[in-house]
């Protein structure tokens, strides 16, 4: 019998207690990743677990030589910058707004958070109806108000499609940014503002030298979450444009789905997924390091 109370074996007891959780995590997280890597190394249309297939780099050769893949990288990068940047600006603005004391603040906070609370597919279907090129209310309102003279083809105009997808993603994503930044704002010691005011600092100086530096860790985490969300989001794009027109909204997640479940080239789909995962890991690591360093 091992005496776990002895100093020599105490750490073993800790490992023993951790073991079930670690095993469970391995099963839930690591196994699917390994499975994806395994499928991506096989020249298969339909992946079947347990079926032995020789490994090959054919899918990766296809990937790096494929116009669709580089287009998806470009579209994803544009979308991350557009959605992440705009959601951060709107999220910060609304967080600062609802952090002020005014009548009806609770209601304002509720409205800011509302898009986040609506299920993604439900919200997207509603937006798809509103953005319908022929019968949508948005085109109708724009035409009625005289802003446009001809209906915008949201699903068959590459630029309009891209921005309509970005708009819905920002609408859906900014509340999370706002909520997180609001929590960050509330944790900034008021003494810092009071001291700055005594020293004659103006509103913008207080914003740039107190608010932003104090918010940096929260902004870092929020940007990581938003970036990963844009990378992996599928429902909004699939419902609105299905990646079209002519690939204008085909992100890496859409390409993964398309290869795996529309064309049933699961080897190629898994290769896109594995590369996406690596890109996400690198970006997350870089963002976390960058913002963590800025705190110190």
């Amino acid at each position: 019998m091992i005496d776990f109370s002895s100093p020599r074996h105490r750490s073993k007891f800790g490992y023993l207690l951790l073991a079930p959780a670690v095993l469970l995590m391995a099963l839930i997280i690591i196994y699917p990743i390994l499975l994806s890597v395994d499928i991506s190394m096989k020249d298969v249309r339909i992946a079947r677990i347990g079926k032995a297939e020789p490994w090959t780099l054919k899918n990766y050769a296809w990937l790096f030589g494929s116009e669709e893949f580089w287009n998806a990288i470009w579209v994803t990068a544009k979308m991350v910058l557009m959605v992440g940047g705009t959601a951060l600006v709107i999220g910060l603005a609304t967080a600062i707004l609802v952090n002020q004391r005014f009548k009806g603040r609770s209601l304002a906070r509720l409205f800011v958070a509302l898009p986040w609370a609506v299920p993604e597919v439900v919200a997207t279907v509603i937006w798809a109806w509103m953005l319908d090129s022929s019968f949508g209310v948005i085109n109708w309102a724009l035409l009625k108000s005289g802003i446009i003279s001809e209906g915008i083809q949201f699903a068959s105009n590459a630029t309009a499609s891209f921005y309509s997808v970005c708009f819905v993603m920002i609408w859906k994503g900014y509340p999370l940014v706002s909520i997180m930044l609001l929590a960050g704002l509330q944790s900034i010691p008021q003494e810092q503002y009071q001291a700055a005011e005594v020293d004659g600092a103006g509103v913008w100086q207080r914003f740039f030298y107190i608010t932003i530096p104090n918010l940096m860790p929260v902004i870092g985490v929020t940007m990581v979450i938003t970036t990963l969300w844009v990378f992996r989001d599928f429902a909004i794009i699939h419902v609105l444009t299905q990646g079209g027109p002519i690939g204008a909204t085909t992100t890496l997640s859409i390409l993964t789905f398309e290869q795996s479940f529309s064309f049933f080239r699961m080897g190629q789909g898994a290769a896109v997924g594995v590369v996406t995962m690596i890109i996400c890991a690198v970006i997350s690591r870089a963002l976390v390091s960058r913002f963590a360093n800025s705190v110190h």
Binding site: S156, G244, P245, E258, S262, F264
Partner: peptide, 19 residues
Amino acid sequence: IEFNEVTKLLFREAQRMLI
């Protein structure tokens, strides 16, 4: 076997033709 891909390609290129 490639029917789904063909429909997608046709759709993409028909859209490209219009756009």
